[in-house]
Amino acid sequence: MIQLVEPYTEDKIRALKMGDMVHLSGMVYTGRDAVHKFLHEGGKPPVDLTNQIIYHCGPVVIKEKGKWVVKAAGPTTSAREEPYQGHIIEKFSIRAVIGKGGMGPKTLEACKKVGCIYLHAIGGAAQVLAECVTGVLGVYLEEFGSPEAIWAFRVRDFPAVVTMDSHGNSLHAAVLEQSREQLKQLV
């Protein structure tokens, strides 16, 4: 298990390779469809995203006795952000994107250029991942609706797998190719 701890420097990110299992500790900022569209169209981010991590997640957060409590925080499908992600990674020097299902060639290219990785979280593991959120430091762009807002989460030992690294390797592409080869033997 590799510990990835803030600050997220380019060196730390470039040292990670496809297939590495990491425990992430530090800040992450949630963002899904509305946030990506907003940033892509030139919207000014309400928090400094430079050298930060974006998490594709629409969490369930409720207020209990005046405090935010995270009830569920699993990843959502990343592929929807493929048209925007590469540009956003380059613009803000994003260091990692967390989600599920992987992303395409444009994102992989930006990861290589900037020094960014794709971290695959475990889809559906809403309770395990909610337990990793140790603090809610703020919420921005709430006008997009709670799941679509930017939530600033502090996480500890958040489990994920590096499925796209900053050297042009994608586990998704590799598994796809290998499974297609296997299928030829089976039909």
């Binding site: 297939g19 629409g58 475990i122 559906g124 309770q127 395990v128 797998v161």
Partner: peptide, 27 residues
Amino acid sequence: SNAQYAMNIIVNNIDLAKLKSQPLCQD
């Protein structure tokens, strides 16, 4: 393996959701 890592988290999530009486998955 990565696969075992994923499966172990899934198993933990199943136990935790039951214990907390909370949705297994947010969807």
